[in-house]
Every structure is written in C-alpha cells, then in structure tokens.
C-alpha cells in the first residue's frame, strides 16, 4: 500500500515558539525515529500540545526548524493527528471516517472506513450521528478516522484526558494496535501509568525546554535527573 520512501526520521532543530509575548518553547533539539511510541511528558503548560501542533504543521515555529525526511507536500498525507477533544463532524459515524479518506483520494474509501470502524468496535454504530456518541466512542472514532489513513506518523494529544477507566483502557488498546501496525505514535499524556504501558521512549518537557529523554524503561526505572524523579513522584507540578 504505502510507498517505500519514508518521512522519518523527523529532525527538530532549535525549535522555538513564542506567542502573546511569552516564550512557550525555548529551543528544542531532538530526532524522532520509526519504532515504538514516543511519549511526551511534562506538567500542565509545559508546551506539550504546542509542540505536537508544531510537529504536525498546524503552527509555524518562530525559530528553528522541523525537518522531515521527505518534501513538505508529501509529508502532509503521511501524518495524522487526534486532538484532545475529538472534533466530530456533524455527520454519521461512517461519514466521519469517510471524510479524510475521500479527501486523500483513497481507492474504495467506503470499505476502508467500515474496516476502520470495525477495528475500534464501532461497526454497529456506523449510521448514528457522531455527536450523539459518548466521549469514549468519539475518541475511538477519531482514532479510527486517523488510522484509516494508514499514516506513517500519528500525533495524539492526551487521548484519554477526559475518559473513564474502561474507555481509557479501550483507547490504550487501540493505540497499541496502531503502533503494532507500523505507525509511529507520538503522544502526550498526564497519565504516568499509561506512559509506562505504551512508551518506547520518553521526552520530558519542563518550562518549554526538553529536560530529558531516553528509552522508557530506563527513564522510569532510574530517572536521569532529580527533577525527572520529582516529576515521576508527582512532586513537580510546574
């Protein structure tokens, strides 16, 4: 299905973002490679959402660069994003899944959309208005809609932030399946248990800087810095 050329690795160089007179990101340098999910952690207001939007191309950096391995025009269709509050088009569940597929000119979009709904357990709700779904079902639909595009990279901004434990578990299973299907997942969360379950590697953002990064297991077992340890203990809220 997918062309062999890949848009990864993604190189981030001196990435800065300022808005309203405030420096939100103060020069980040890192590389994202294909592989297990990258979890971006950090206290509220650290700049996680802004970082995802910059990487996805919804915001433009005020300094530095986000460099994909492919030209920009080809990268657009190879990445997708699911927002913290899923955006449900005022259409049926199936029509929501179809919309980006049609836009991308996918062959046989109906079949692909139905398949995507089945993968997240929403096949039976295909004809319902999307906005009548529960919060967990909406988030699953948003994931299905993104997954159906078979993106190389999927950005997820706190996908379980307002869900109950059962819905959270379903979403985590879907995220794990998406990662297992070969999509690079880049995700923020404030749920440290979830981060342990899903992460291949961790980036810790503090005050708009990349404070630490590393393989997940090492990061959680022996935090690299005192502040990282304090964050994992829940002692560092800002």
């Amino acid at each position: 299905m997918r062309a062999r050329a890949t848009c990864l690795p993604l190189e981030v160089e001196g990435l800065r973002f300022a808005a309203g007179g405030a420096e939100i990101l103060r020069g980040l340098d890192f590389t994202l490679d294909a592989g297990a999910p990258t979890l971006i952690l950090g206290p509220n207001g650290a700049g996680k959402s802004v970082l995802l939007r910059l990487l996805h191309g919804l915001l433009s950096p005020t300094g530095g660069a986000v460099r994909w391995a492919l030209p920009e025009a080809e990268v657009r269709r190879r990445q997708a994003m699911v927002f913290q509050r899923p955006v449900m088009l005022r259409r049926s569940v199936l029509a929501n899944a179809l919309y980006p597929l049609r836009l991308a000119g996918m062959p046989q979009p109906k079949e692909a959309a139905r398949e995507a709904l089945a993968r997240v357990g929403l096949a039976a709700l295909a004809e319902r208005p999307a906005r009548a779904l529960s919060g967990g079902e909406q988030q699953r639909l948003a994931l299905a809609r993104a997954w159906a595009l078979a993106p190389e990279v999927l950005f997820l901004d706190e996908p379980t932030a307002s869900l109950d434990p059962a819905a959270t578990r379903q979403v985590e299973e879907i995220v794990a399946a998406i990662a297992a299907s070969g999509t690079k997942v880049v995700m923020t969360t404030h749920d440290l248990g979830q981060a342990r379950r899903l992460a291949g590697e961790v980036l810790l953002l503090l005050h708009g800087t990349l404070h630490a990064r590393g393989p997940a297991k090492a990061f959680f077992d022996s935090p690299p810095t005192e502040q990282a340890a304090a964050f994992l203990r829940g002692d560092l809220v800002w």
């Binding site: 939007r53 657009r76 955006v87 005022r90």
Partner: peptide, 14 residues
C-alpha cells in the same frame, strides 16, 4: 463551527 473544525480540517489537508 469553523472555530471548532479549523485545526481538524487543516490536519486532514482540506
């Protein structure tokens, strides 16, 4: 409605 849809539609490449 546009306020709500803007980022998602841009993300879809619309």
């Amino acid at each position: 409605l546009w306020e709500e849809y803007r980022d998602q539609l841009r993300s879809f490449g619309a």
